[in-house]
């Protein structure tokens, strides 16, 4: 029995109708949107803490003295452009172009990986050259807390995308799975958007540029 062609008796007026299945939003999309909403408030809290504590340190180093915006801009461009490549990947998968999908997904992984590498380099510099640790001062606490959680989310996203890429290489990914991949890409976009806010807070407000 195909549900789409059911004739039903409308209890309101007793008339027989042949109505299509009523539209409902996709549960996957609503679920991922809910997760993103929750995560926004999570990051929002860390951003508020960071902004609130700018200039409240009793001793250095602070964002103005320790952060170097130049390289971060490069790594940021990597991360933000990976939003575009993941869109290309999803579109390729939906039309069944497997090779194109793997190419664009691979590019996304590389760009995301580059960003994580950039963060690692930056942290190394902060720890070795500026002796900034999470326990050093308020700036250390809020900076490592905020940027660290963002990096953690990037890594989670990379794991998910990497798994999809591997499944595709192993031949387990079908065109119908494009919707699931799209949901993961929503998460990836979210991580990118959060970075825009983190970047503005930490590298523009936090360094005194703005």
């Amino acid at each position: 029995m195909a549900a789409t062609s059911d004739a039903t008796v409308d209890p309101t007026d007793g008339a027989t109708r042949r109505d299509a299945v009523e539209w409902r939003p996709s549960r996957g999309k609503v679920g991922v949107a809910s997760l993103i909403a929750m995560e926004s408030f999570f990051f929002g809290t860390f951003i508020v803490a960071f902004l609130f504590y700018i200039g409240k340190d009793v001793h250095g180093p602070t964002g103005a003295t320790a952060l170097d915006v130049g390289p971060v801009i490069v790594w940021s461009i990597c991360l933000l452009s990976s939003s575009a490549t993941v869109v290309a990947a999803v579109k390729a998968l939906a039309r069944g172009a497997k090779a194109a999908f793997e190419f664009w997904m691979g590019a996304t992984l590389l760009l995301g990986g580059a960003f994580v590498y950039g963060t690692a380099v930056e942290w190394r510099g902060l720890m070795l050259d500026h002796e900034l640790f999470i326990s050093t001062n308020l700036f250390g606490s809020t900076y490592y807390g905020l940027v660290g959680f963002h990096a953690f989310h990037v890594v989670l996203g990379l794991l998910a995308l990497g798994m999809i890429w591997t499944l595709s290489k192993l031949g387990h990914l079908r065109a119908v799975d494009a919707e699931k991949v799209e949901l993961v890409s929503w998460y990836w976009h979210f991580v990118d958007v959060v970075w825009i806010f983190v970047f503005t807070s930490v590298y523009l407000f936090g360094t005194g540029i703005l």
Binding site: F43, G44, S135, L138, T142, F149
Partner: peptide, 23 residues
């Protein structure tokens, strides 16, 4: 909307207590 900020604040407190942060 409510549990995200609570979790974030608890993580900060956890950092304060276990990693020596100063939130």
């Amino acid at each position: 909307t409510a549990l995200g900020p609570l979790t974030a604040a608890q993580v900060m407190l956890l950092f304060d207590r276990n990693l020596g942060a100063h939130f």
